[in-house]
């Protein structure tokens, strides 16, 4: 049962947006699969449809053609099952809620999670996991950009989702904050064993984070290549100075320039 062991099975997915003036093909014939517990980085220039692909997985956009299976179900079933956590580029926190109230939001709407594991972390524990102990009662405008994004990661984890979808979550942050959050995301992935699908346009981020990188090309969005990243699971920022890392990153760059 190949499909059952996959977190995502994407077969020949095409997405077209029809407007009054013209038809835009955002994705053409995209196929890939992601194993459960895996960490796949979607890498490509802007306009390659990587955010669109993530939204097809999350059932926010319906594919024009092709099939998408998420955790052995349709994307809609997976969404209704509350199997997915989504982290947006802008943290998308509700400004009238404190950090902890924002983390609690997924427990309050949509009937709450279908089944939480007995040892599911509480909102307070999740804020601690993302390094925000003591900031529970702060409002979003009192937090820095990096802290807001941490809150949104805690919010995505509160339903113990089987898969985390991340749409350039660190794209708007400064380099230092971004590096630190990259390191922490690897740690969180290892601790929670949640499948992660991560959209980025940074080659270094994709190599550092991903167990595998799916490279997309633009106009129309299509798969260029999928590359496995042979780096050890325990990664610190220092790994970016190793020969292997530099070689892999250079290979991806060369491939993207073609």
């Amino acid at each position: 049962m190949h499909a059952m062991s996959s977190a995502v099975e994407c077969r020949n997915v095409t997405v077209r947006f029809v407007t009054e003036r013209r038809t835009v093909t955002a994705l053409e014939n995209v196929s890939f699969s992601l194993q459960r517990g895996g960490f796949l980085a979607l890498l490509g220039p802007s306009g390659c449809g990587k955010s669109t692909l993530l939204r097809v997985v999350a059932d926010l956009i319906q594919p024009t053609a092709g099939s998408m299976a998420v955790l052995g179900q349709t994307p809609e079933e997976a969404r209704r099952d509350r199997a997915l956590g989504f982290v947006f580029q802008d943290a998308a926190l509700l400004p009238w809620r404190t950090a902890i109230q924002n983390v609690q939001l997924p427990l309050e709407v949509g009937g709450g999670p279908k089944s939480l594991p007995a040892n599911a972390p509480t909102p307070r524990e999740l804020l601690k996991l993302v390094g925000l102990e003591g900031w529970e009662n702060s409002f979003p405008h009192e937090l820095s950009g990096g802290m807001r994004q941490r809150v949104s990661i805690a919010r995505a984890l509160v339903t113990s989702p089987r898969m985390l979808l991340m749409d350039e979550p660190f794209g708007a942050l400064d380099e230092f904050t971004r590096d630190r959050l990259n390191e922490e995301l690897r740690r969180i992935w290892q601790e929670t064993r949640t499948t992660i699908l991560f959209v980025t346009h940074s080659i270094y981020e994709s190599v550092f984070l991903g167990e595998s990188v799916l490279m997309l090309a633009a106009n129309p969005g299509r798969v260029r290549e999928q590359v496995n990243i042979d780096l050890p699971p325990d990664r610190t920022l220092a790994i970016r100075d190793t020969e292997t890392f530099v070689r892999v990153a250079a290979g991806l760059r060369k491939s993207l320039e073609h």
């Binding site: 999350a58 059932d59 969404r79 209704r80 997915l84 947006f88 802008d90 998308a92 997924p106 949509g110």
Partner: peptide
């Protein structure tokens, strides 16, 4: 994006309105 979040969470129209 907050609207998309509510959709990912399968929030009802009433929940989207009040929350």
């Amino acid at each position: 994006q907050a609207m998309e979040l509510m959709r990912v969470l399968s929030a009802s129209k009433t929940e989207i309105f009040f929350k």
